[in-house]
Amino acid sequence: MSTAQDPGRLGGAEFPGSAGSLALFWHVARRGRELARPPVQAALWHQVRRGTLDFAALAAVLGALAGFLTIVTVDIGFGLGVTAGVRVFHSLVLRQLAGFACTLLLVAGPGTAALVELGLMRQQGELRTLRLIGIDPRDLLVLPRVLGFALALFVLVFVFQVSAAVGGFALAAAFGGASFTQEILTLADLLQPATLVVSGARNLLLGAILGLIVCHLGLVAPFAPARLPEAVNRLLARSLAALVVVQGGAALFLP
């Protein structure tokens, strides 16, 4: 073992010019054409699969439970009627809880996995290998993850919302005596195309930010296996801050 520093293992040396999440974002924004390369596409679909298929069932169950409990509590428990129940469901479950729950799912599962994977790749000199075979690690590792997280959150939230509406209303009808048809029709009146577009765009943006946070913590910030709990805590704290900013901003300024 030598006393000399190994330049291939220094965080900054692996990513010349990448000082932080904003630099990574700038790189991703400029390198969209790299998605035409087969290994980058494979990495993207791997990330989307890992973020959605593994957690879609859980998101669906959580959504159905959230919808069921909201309708049963407001409509039947408080006796406020179908319209009030569906309005609370729309404002609380569809617009807020869906994004919140799916963000936590994404961060706790694929987010932590990607953080560890990227950190270990850096530890084991694999970023050096990529650079030595002429591949910019940001193209192969950051770009697919940022886009993959964006698509995964978009899909997960959609699954949660559909399941909350269909499954939640069906459960409420089966076990609480509510009218499934009336609830669906009331919800259809409340939903507007602009709301759906804003919700989708917000989830894509939030997912991309989560991907950037994961990549920054895994590839640029100081990382060591022994300090993994600290890295995971940082990931959770930053993800929640991003969630509050994006969700709060959307709630305040958009329909």
Binding site: E117, E126, T129, R131, L132, I133, G134, D136
Partner: peptide
């Protein structure tokens, strides 16, 4: 990077992507 794309690099240790 463009120069390195014209050559082939092989190493036994740390030469492959682990995942």
């Amino acid at each position: 990077l463009a120069l390195r794309s014209r050559l082939g690099f092989a190493a036994q240790a740390e030469g492959l992507v682990g995942h």
